[in-house]
Design a binder for these strands. Structure first.
Lengths: 214, 214
DNA sequence: GGCACACTGTGATGGATATCACACGGCGCG
DNA sequence: CGCGCCGTGTGATATCCATCACAGTGTGCC
């Protein structure tokens, strides 16, 4: 989902920034917590997600370095609107709101970069909301698989889903683990995807057809 | 949901901007359409909403002057992610993306204002998504009523919902007109709200209790 | 002031999906 | 290299809600 920050930009505020590490599984911050820093993810992978009081989870996104998150708290002092959890060991830099306007003075393009990031994320979130409101679980699970497999195809040349359990896919699709399982089985039966052990190989063409068709 | 633009800001780019009027009911732009302008709403009321292929509707928001919308297309050239429809007669100014960086040079605070707006809207959209994923129709309808009534209370001193049909409330809550009707009737029976003709008076305290309680 | 039309209230029904329950499979750690 | 545990597959059941159907109601327009 990211990022327009160039190395030059990073240099610009190298001394405003603070280095941190988190082990796999750690919470970087929690929903409803206050905090005025944004984070630049330098290495590793994080999950941005929401938890309901009764233990359900909805994943907003997975981010891979280089990326940034937590920008919303730079401009207002509202509580965090999601949890961010380290999926692997993580290295990152934090930038406090106090330093932001200084950073923008030094490099106004940074502001445009933030605007671009927020825009992309808002679009993405609106699309998610649209899916929740208009489409059934099958459609949503297919869309998640298409997104993940497409990203994999673009970065590694293979349209494969791995490192995500059915539970993870379900939280991305906003449905239950069981429902996601059933849908994946059924797609495998129809040869839209092929499951090899705990890995899913996606037929991008067919999957896209299915998503458009109905 | 808005806005940090001061009259001074408006002066700054008075000559980059173009004046337009739309009658009640007009589409200002459509989802999926391309377009690189943002709009400053000077007078009137618009609805930002999504339409599904099979005729369902999900309202993202209603905006009242002064407000702005369509900023996302300033920084990328993705299609519009929602429809914007004039609910009353509307007057607005459009600002093209080409002029944006110039405007930001003239007034860097404008960038911060955009970031703040986008942040607020992203928070709001995430909260909507959370509601859709975790809560039932009753909860969502109550939240819509609480939001509208609270806004009314703050601007006019009376916690009243008017000018919105049950259908409108349903599209804001992401449910059907019938379900919204049933929920409102039931809340009226329990004296959480009182319906006077086509107007709903809300007991803010009780409604908030109900929303927190379960 | 009345007539039409949009809005509202409410029953009946079916369908999607959450949830509970449990068996099976494979992966990783000791 | 085997045992345990997490992940997966799938049935049965219950619930929420969309949808269809239609009667009653208010409002604005002529």
């Amino acid at each position: 989902m990211f990022s327009d920050l160039s190395p030059a930009d990073l240099d610009t505020f190298a001394d405003m920034v603070q280095y941190r590490r988190y082990p796999r599984g750690a919470f970087i911050f929690n929903q409803h917590e206050t905090g005025s820093a944004m984070y630049l993810l330098a290495a590793g992978r994080v999950k941005v997600s929401l938890a309901s009081p009764d233990g359900k989870e909805l994943a907003l996104n997975y981010l891979e370095a280089p990326a940034h998150f937590g920008e919303m708290s730079l401009v207002d002092s509202e509580p965090r609107s999601a949890d961010v959890i380290a999926v692997t060991d993580v290295e990152l830099f934090s930038l406090d709101a106090r330093d932001l306007s200084a950073a923008i003075q030094l490099n106004p393009k940074l502001a445009l970069s933030l605007i671009a990031t927020l825009s992309r994320r808002l679009r993405h979130t609106i699309a998610r909301l649209e899916d929740m409101a208009f489409h059934d679980a099958t459609h949503r699970v297919m869309r998640v698989m298409l997104n993940v497999a497409t990203a994999s195809y673009e970065s590694r040349g293979v349209p494969v889903i791995q490192g995500l359990t059915h539970y993870d896919i379900a939280t991305l699709a906003g449905t239950s683990r069981e429902t996601a399982s059933r849908i994946i089985s059924s797609l495998a039966r129809e040869e839209v995807v092929a499951t090899k052990g705990r890995k899913i190989v996606v037929d991008l063409i067919r999957l896209r057809e299915r998503l458009e068709g109905k």
